[in-house]
Amino acid sequence: TFTSIVTTNPDFGGFEFYVEAGQQFDDSAYEEAYGVSVPSAVVEEMNAKAAQLKDGEWLNVSHE
């Protein structure tokens, strides 16, 4: 299960995956970082959410 939350205070020191406002979700980078295949429906969902981000916001993507 993939989830996401919007934050204005990303923790770059941890093992977190963020999408910056104005960027798209990079499923290849996510797969490389976590060894998890990302279904195309999830990629579309995360890109739709990322498109709604305002300046200074980040989308924190995770999975269980």
Rank of each mutant, 00 (worst) to 15 (best):
A29N: 04
S4G: 12
F2I: 04
S28E: 12
E64Y: 12
A51K: 10
D26P: 03
G13S: 14
S40N: 09
A29S: 07
F17A: 02
F2M: 03
G13I: 07
G35K: 08
E64T: 15
F25H: 02
L53G: 02
S40Y: 13
A21H: 10
A41M: 10
E20Y: 13
F15S: 14
W58M: 09
A41L: 10
M46G: 00
G14H: 08
N60M: 15
E44C: 10
G14A: 10
F15D: 13
P10W: 02
P10K: 05
A33Y: 12
Y18E: 00
A51V: 06
V6G: 03
G13N: 13
F2E: 00
S40A: 14
E44Y: 07
D11C: 14
I5H: 13
Q24D: 08
T7G: 01
Y18Q: 07
A33W: 13
G13R: 10
N47F: 04
F12K: 07
E57Y: 06
N47Q: 07
L59M: 06
E20L: 07
T3V: 12
F25N: 01
E16Q: 14
A51G: 09
Q23C: 11
D55I: 14
L59H: 01
Y18V: 04
E44L: 10
F25E: 01
S28V: 14
Y18P: 02
V42C: 06
A50E: 02
T1N: 13
K54L: 09
S28D: 09
V43D: 02
D26L: 07
G22P: 00
D26N: 12
E45Q: 10
S62E: 03
I5E: 11
F17N: 00
G56R: 05
E64N: 13
E64A: 13
N60T: 11
T8M: 10
E44S: 10
V36P: 02
E16M: 14
A29F: 07
N60P: 00
D55G: 09
A33I: 15
F17D: 00
Y18K: 04
D55T: 14
E32Q: 14
S62W: 15
A50R: 02
A50K: 01
V61G: 01
E44F: 08
Q52W: 07
V38P: 06
Y30D: 00
E64L: 13
E20P: 14
T3L: 11
T3G: 06
P39W: 03
A29E: 06
G35S: 07
T7P: 00
A33D: 04
V36Q: 05
S4I: 08
V36S: 04
G35Q: 07
H63A: 03
V36G: 01
H63G: 03
S40K: 15
Y18F: 08
V61T: 03
Y30V: 03
Q24F: 13
F25G: 01
S37M: 11
S28M: 13
S4P: 03
H63W: 12
S37L: 10
E32W: 11
P10H: 06
S28H: 14
A29V: 07
E64D: 12
V61N: 00
G22D: 02
S62V: 10
V19N: 00
G56L: 03
E31R: 14
I5L: 12
E20Q: 14
G13M: 10
K54Q: 10
V6D: 02
D55F: 12
Q52K: 12
D26S: 08
I5C: 15
Y34G: 01
G35V: 01
Y30L: 02
E32C: 13
A51L: 10
D11E: 09
E20K: 15
Q23L: 08
V42K: 04
Y30F: 14
H63D: 03
A33G: 04
W58I: 02
Q23T: 12
T7Y: 05
V43E: 03
G14L: 08
V43M: 06
S40P: 14
G56W: 04
E57L: 00
V6T: 07
A48L: 13
S37R: 15
G14T: 09
Y18D: 00
P10M: 03
P39G: 04
K49N: 06
E45P: 01
V6S: 05
E31C: 11
S4Y: 13
F25P: 00
S62F: 14
I5P: 04
V6L: 06
S4L: 08
A50S: 06
N47V: 04
Q23A: 12
Q24H: 10
D11R: 09
E64C: 14
D55Q: 14
A48T: 09
A48G: 08
H63F: 12
E45W: 11
E57V: 01
W58Q: 01
E31W: 14
T8W: 08
W58F: 09
E16A: 14
A41G: 09
Y18N: 03
N9C: 14
A50M: 05
A29W: 07
P10Y: 02
D11P: 06
G13F: 11
E45F: 10
Y18R: 05
M46Q: 02
Q52M: 13
V43Y: 06
V36R: 05
A29L: 11
E31A: 13
V42M: 05
T8C: 09
A41I: 10
F2Q: 00
F15A: 12
A50F: 00
S4R: 01
Q52E: 10
S4Q: 05
E16Y: 15
M46K: 00
T1H: 13
E45K: 06
V38H: 00
A29Q: 08
A41V: 10
G56Y: 05
Q24E: 10
A51R: 10
F2D: 00
V61Y: 01
V6W: 02
V19W: 02
